[in-house]
Design a protein around this nucleic acid. Sequence first.
DNA 1: CCGGGTTCTTACCGTTGCGTAACTTACTTC
DNA 2: GAAGTAAGTTACGCAACGGTAAGAACCCGG
Lengths: 205, 205
Amino acid sequence: MKASRRLPASERRAQLIEVGRAAFARYGYEGTSMEKVADSARVSKPVIYEHFGGKEGLYAVIVDREMDYVVRRIVEAIATGTPRERVEQASLAFLTYVRDQPDGFAILSQDSPLTATRGRLSSLLNDLAERVGHVFAASFKDAGYDPRAAPIYAHALVGMVTFVGKWWTDVRKPSVEEVAKHIGALAWMGLRHLPKKPTLQSRPR
Amino acid sequence: MKASRRLPASERRAQLIEVGRAAFARYGYEGTSMEKVADSARVSKPVIYEHFGGKEGLYAVIVDREMDYVVRRIVEAIATGTPRERVEQASLAFLTYVRDQPDGFAILSQDSPLTATRGRLSSLLNDLAERVGHVFAASFKDAGYDPRAAPIYAHALVGMVTFVGKWWTDVRKPSVEEVAKHIGALAWMGLRHLPKKPTLQSRPR
DNA sequence: CCGGGTTCTTACCGTTGCGTAACTTACTTC
DNA sequence: GAAGTAAGTTACGCAACGGTAAGAACCCGG
């Protein structure tokens, strides 16, 4: 073979990110070895260490880029429109991301051992949920709902879309637009008809 | 120290399951070493191999028990009552499980490398979602909704509760009953007011 | 064709982790 | 108390992985 030629630093760096992203997506953080990444890039290990310092460094760069990307996509989606449209567009944006960037989504939905050690909650999607929570808290206050419940709903929505996304990558059956319709409807109708003070209809036993 | 005495096979086995469960919950499958499990049980490695054959064997037994347990809890919860009560009770049952069995929940919500290799989708909760999907499909048909959309909603609900559960283990702020109220309301209201044919209110650009 | 910087490789170290072979210790039963 | 069985230990083999030191191959201006 002997395919790969020598590359300038910036290109090599970009290639390593690409290759590493695919590896981390497929095998997870622990399951990915530097050897494999190096081999996939047709390069020897020290090259990676030269560029990223270590495994964590490479992973951090990849995760950072991915978070930036997906957050930007969603922020764009909810920039304008009625509340309902925003919910729908956010779902659609996320599912479109899942479809177009399955590797990125796989990385984000893995429990990353890095953030798990320093942070409390492992999931990177938690950040996203927290941001949504702040948006919700404001809307809740305006609408006369208890803002302390906002995080619950925020996490519920993120979890909903995430889990459906994970499932979708497997079955790939209805189009993301179709799925987004249903998710959007469920979320919106749920929020729209929320009682101010939810109660449990606990059944008598 | 020299605390642990010799135990009969069945007790040792039970103890190893308990200890292993805690370890897998805390460090994940890959992050848990047999050495650590053995040390925690005040026993040497070959004892574990005698009982479970290997790491995968131990893990399989633990996961199997856990799935049995949680499924039984939920099946009990949705055995009787109105549809709404079932949704609420299912949420409450799951969140109660999250509260009372944080280790078990941690294990189930990890991406398990074992099922990931042989199966397609990693999550063990996927099985749960699939079962819910079947229940939904029947109800959908009766109510005049498209049963092909059932899996979407099933995964949405499971993802919702799971993600909120994960978050709850971290903050532990409102009681599970309180959280279940909101989740139940969101899910129920969403399902209740679902249009037969959801559409996207795509905004004009 | 020669010096200087960049890019990359070979070869290795230390550690960790799964799994096993050979042996020892304790308990029970006659 | 000896024989036999159940329970457990020590010590090791072996592979994989993260990381690094030392130097080779390449490229370009002079």
